[in-house]
């Protein structure tokens, strides 16, 4: 019984939040990795793209709410999501047309793209704060829980409760659908294959008649979708605040690099590696240990390896270890 309680406590505080957070990071890292694979630069504006996508979705959500439209137990934001993606796609395509395309025709080196993306980051950051403000925004509605801790206790008779938030459930389901669709698209459709070909060998792709501008356009649209979905899921789960999205840049890049930049499978693996390390290392294991250890050995402290204030240090240390020992990442990076 104690073992079961320990497992429930672990699921409640480590497994479920880890899976949800991992899915969010994986979606973010997929966007970064797509840009790296096709446009060949590290996009520092990605965190703020996620913030913009989430913001656009929130605005539409509010509009729908004011019209009295809702999805019942599900958050209205899901209904607003396609609109958010559309706005973000327009923004990214506009940015590409006005800013990035010039450097592409110049065949500028990736560092220049990176610095340009810093400028874009500034602009997007300003734009988001200008429109919605720098503060926290609430937009989650509908049923908050799929399983409530108290009901779970009453239902199972265990002393430890299990809470499963709607946002977590939606995150996992959405992530699975999106990732499955993306892999199908990249591996089975002609357009997806042409993107992989472009990423693999740009010159040969041109020789084969693949239109580079079309590939780039589709990439930005996919990135807009991935970033918006990741941003909205994160916002539903943990609340929306522009600055936290900027801070997500580090774990997202860590995830993409750990998996191997440019490798979609790597981005997903990296997302979960980073998320679980972060959650596990910053979780206080006192409760779990109290259940599984004999009373005489009960821990006195919190048994927390690192305080949650240092969660960024976890991504960072993993990043450093990967850079030291396997700079190409767990999966070989570069091509899609």
């Amino acid at each position: 019984m104690d073992l079961l309680n320990a497992f429930i406590a672990l699921s409640n505080f480590v497994l479920i939040p880890g899976i949800a957070y991992g899915s969010q990071l994986a979606l973010g890292a997929l966007g970064v990795t797509l840009i790296y694979g096709i446009l060949r630069f590290s996009n520092f504006a990605h965190g703020d793209t996620m913030a913009f996508g989430a913001m656009a979705t929130i605005m539409v959500t509010w509009l729908l709410q004011s019209w009295g439209i809702s999805l019942g137990p599900l958050p209205t934001a899901l209904l607003a999501l396609p609109f958010g993606i559309a706005f973000t796609a327009l923004l990214l395509l506009g940015t590409d047309r006005v800013i990035y395309r010039f450097y592409r025709t110049q065949k500028s080196p990736p560092v220049i793209f990176l610095i340009v993306s810093l400028g874009v980051m500034f602009i997007m950051n300003g734009l988001v704060r200008f429109i919605i403000g720098p503060g926290d925004q609430r937009f989650a509605d509908g049923e908050r829980f799929i399983i409530r801790a108290r009901e779970f206790k009453a239902w199972t008779g265990l002393s430890e409760g299990l809470a499963f938030k709607t946002s977590q459930g939606i995150t996992v389901i959405t992530a699975v659908i999106v990732v499955a669709w993306l892999f199908w698209f990249l591996n089975k459709t002609r357009t997806g294959k042409s993107m992989r070909a472009f990423s693999d060998n740009e010159d040969l792709a041109l020789l084969s008649g693949i239109n580079p501008e079309r590939v780039v356009t589709i990439t930005w649209i996919l990135v807009a979708a991935l970033a918006t979905i990741a941003g909205v899921l994160y916002g539903l789960d943990k609340g929306f605040k522009p600055f936290t999205y900027f801070q997500l840049l580090l774990p997202i890049f860590a995830a993409a690099i750990v998996g191997g930049l440019g490798n979609p499978l790597g981005a997903i693996t990296g997302g979960f590696v980073i998320a679980f390390s972060e959650v596990t290392i910053t979780y206080a294991f006192k409760k779990v240990l109290t259940y599984i250890l004999p009373d005489s050995l009960d821990p006195t402290g919190l048994v927390q390896l690192l305080s949650t204030d240092y969660k960024f240090a976890v991504s960072f240390v993993i990043l450093i270890i990967v850079l030291l020992f396997k700079p190409t990442g767990l999966f070989k990076g570069k091509a899609l």
Binding site: F41, S42, P110, L114, F316, L319, L323
Partner: peptide, 20 residues
């Protein structure tokens, strides 16, 4: 750690150390 690798790795590593 980060020098001698690709240039963007240094950027990301410095971004991280600053946060820490």
């Amino acid at each position: 750690v980060a020098l001698g690798l690709r240039s963007d790795y240094l950027a990301i590593a410095t971004l991280g150390i600053a946060e820490i």
